[in-house]
């Protein structure tokens, strides 16, 4: 069951990049949640979530972003999202995320936006 959603983690300077792959729903959302918890524990507050291989997202997946963004911003960081397919962006858009989250066309744009904030 787990194979339907995987996360690959990379590091670029002080920025943690999570590539999320597959289907993020109420069954797989805890995996992303675990990842955010680990990042906070290791004081990695600058996070990019690259969604290029995210095939599907349900509101349980969006709920994970909702639960952690405030803590991470209060700690001086951010969760930036990038590389969404049109279908995935549509779901974020329906729930009003684009006005509250920093969503970028691609990862390099998200990286620049972090680096410009320093």
């Amino acid at each position: 069951m787990m194979k339907h959603f995987t996360i690959t983690k990379r590091q670029e300077e002080h920025i943690a990049i999570l590539e999320i792959n597959g289907e993020l729903d109420a069954h797989t959302a805890f995996q992303l949640e675990q990842q955010f918890k680990t990042l906070i524990e290791t004081e990695a507050y600058h996070i990019i979530v690259n969604c290029s291989n995210l095939e599907y997202i349900a509101s349980a997946g969006l709920g994970v972003f909702m639960a952690y963004i405030e803590d991470i911003r209060n700690l001086g960081g951010d969760i930036k999202l990038s590389n969404m397919t049109d279908g995935v962006y549509h779901v974020f858009d329906l729930l009003g995320f684009p006005s509250l989250y920093d969503i970028h066309r691609d990862e390099s744009e998200a990286l620049s936006s972090f680096k410009n904030q320093k």
């Binding site: 349900a58 509101s59 709920g63 909702m66 639960a67 729930l95 009003g96 509250l100």
Partner: peptide, 18 residues
């Protein structure tokens, strides 16, 4: 209200809306 939910670290409740 998405902003309020984020501030209160609430999740869920979005399914019916969707």
């Amino acid at each position: 209200d998405l902003l309020k939910r984020i501030k209160n670290k609430q999740r869920g409740g979005m399914g019916v809306y969707l």
